[in-house]
Nucleic acid binder design. Structure first.
Lengths: 327, 327
DNA sequence: TTGTAGGCGTTATCAT
DNA sequence: ATGATAACGCCTACAA
């Protein structure tokens, strides 16, 4: 059996209380006793049981992370940075892949609650408001609008849409398409399209949206992109994410469409990964480090200050442009 | 406060025991009582406390995942698939990023033990044997040799090295370099280099290893690759992973070295991501789905059958070749 | 400086 | 068919 506190106590010849005190560095202990207890712990390979500890009211120091996937470089970088940052604060992370599946997200949310996590950071986006609303747990959301109780961090998607469009225009494109999810569900990312529309209008151009959905396989996206490019009307494309932009470049190469001469392409996200392995791609860069810092900071704040949200309004971080050769 | 079992009991007008019975579907309950309890649970938004439950000896249904990072597509796909598979079996996942940091890995291992996880799947690779050895927890490792008690799953790295080398040879390369970590620490991945060496010898060629380390930044790798390519001696390169291969292609383009005419390149891993977004890259494909299935299957087996490892020897899965245009 | 007792929320055992 | 009771491993008053 696993050694428990009382085993250590017996081994060290003291009471369980004393051992607990040593572990938690509580109150006054004689150096000798401390040493005895440490030796006993060492000898028995003792590990305190976090469960029992948390049951007694202590925090679990576990944060739940709910995201729609981890293979997209944007999410893998975001999650890796979050994990890193939280680890430094002494937190572990339970990773929940909502996989764009409402049921799975709900299941996970329940599990996290059942496991008494200290807080949740979520970037998933299916659930009805109430499930999240119904808990008093500190929750911070990235790029998703859940409920008034839950602060949202995002980067400036509107400005991103504007900047992408303007950048294409400045480079000479006049038939600028937007490629991404046309559904407007009220999430911050919807603003990329809004920014596009807004700027298109300001420039006196025509607005064209080519729908590409998050849950389509790359093959399907590719076929869809091909249909668009074959028409040969677009000379500029604002892609709602970098991976889509890469598919556009692939299809363009396949169709022998010259980039950027005949077609200019701009992506969105600008992760380290993409900038390193697809340095050609011009893209709107989200400030990942700042996003992570804000998410963690606000979460920590909510955890430490039991008072409800104070001036916790939504927080929008500025984006920037990375210039590759596709424009 | 959060409702507890006894609150539900009070609400439903029964004893806590009965509520527990309903929740766990234990013994005989009248349909009426059941209904009452369910209603009460619903009404109070009751969530059983997993901690208390686990403290009472129940499993936590949490699996720890220890990997050296998640941004490499190979790991992100592996982890995503593991999470998916484990979720289907009713397990949650605590994600631990060892970040190639011995201390962090040890910390995480301790935390996992403290949190009474039901098992661990690890693909990290720093720790001394003893820490893992010292526990009776079911642990399965991917591509890392820890200890005799811990079964290792891997794909056929030796054959991968052989196949990569032979493929380059068949395409006409005669000055074939290996690019990757030259240190042999006894891990399965070392065999990629061994396979290369073995085949080089069989072919009567000279063996050349250009060292690239896992923890180098892409910039550094690139500079290092550049130094090699500028010498112009290599006409074929076996890369120990796909990302390195992509850097090689970048540098080759920069130096105006024609691929595959003057230089043939083959990568290693062959994730869906790379095959989709870098379809040109010829690469050795690891059977990720099979790897995941084996990892999960063996872990479940170890968890369910308390008996110690039976014939749990290491398990090696076959690799395959994906043909792009870089050879 | 150290020990004793009770309880955190749940479940298993024994009654009824 | 349902309840009372005693654990699970730890922590925190309260004593001594």
């Amino acid at each position: 059996m696993k050694p428990k506190l009382s085993d250590v106590a017996k081994e060290a010849g003291v009471s369980p209380t004393t051992v607990s005190r040593v572990i938690n560095n509580h109150g006054y202990l004689s150096a000798q006793t401390k040493q005895n207890v440490f030796d006993a712990m060492e000898k028995l390979h003792y590990q305190p049981n976090s469960l029992a500890r948390s049951l007694k009211g202590k925090k679990t120091r576990i944060i739940g992370l709910i995201f729609p996937g981890i293979t997209n470089p944007f999410f893998s970088e975001l999650i890796e940075k979050l994990e890193k940052s939280l680890f430094l604060q002494g937190y572990k992370v339970i990773l929940c892949n909502s996989a764009d599946d409402v049921k799975k997200e709900r299941d996970y949310l329940r599990m996290l609650l059942a496991n008494q996590v200290d807080g949740i950071i979520t970037g998933a986006h299916n659930l009805g408001i109430d499930e999240y609303q119904n808990t008093n747990l500190p929750i911070i959301s990235f790029d998703r609008r859940y409920a008034d109780k839950i602060p949202t961090i995002s980067s400036d998607n509107l400005q991103g849409g504007v900047l992408a469009t303007q950048t294409l225009y400045d480079a000479g494109a006049r038939h600028i398409y937007f490629m991404g999810n046309p559904n407007q569900k009220g999430n911050p990312t919807d603003k990329r399209l809004q920014g596009y529309r807004q700027q298109i209008e300001a420039l006196g151009l025509g607005s064209h949206v080519h729908p590409i959905y998050f849950d389509e396989t790359p093959m399907i996206k590719q076929a869809s992109i091909r249909r668009l490019l074959e028409k040969g009307q677009a000379d500029g494309i604002v892609c709602a994410d970098d991976l889509t932009a890469i598919l556009v470049l692939q299809v363009a190469a396949m169709l022998k469409i010259k980039v950027p001469e005949s077609l200019k392409v701009i992506g969105y996200d600008g992760t380290d990964f993409i900038r390193t392995y697809f340095p050609d791609l011009t893209t709107i860069v989200q400030p990942l480090d700042d996003i992570v810092m804000m998410l963690v900071k606000m979460l920590m704040h909510r955890i430490d200050n039991d008072e409800q949200l104070i001036d916790e309004e939504d927080f929008v971080l500025p984006i920037s442009l990375y210039r590759g050769t596709t424009i």
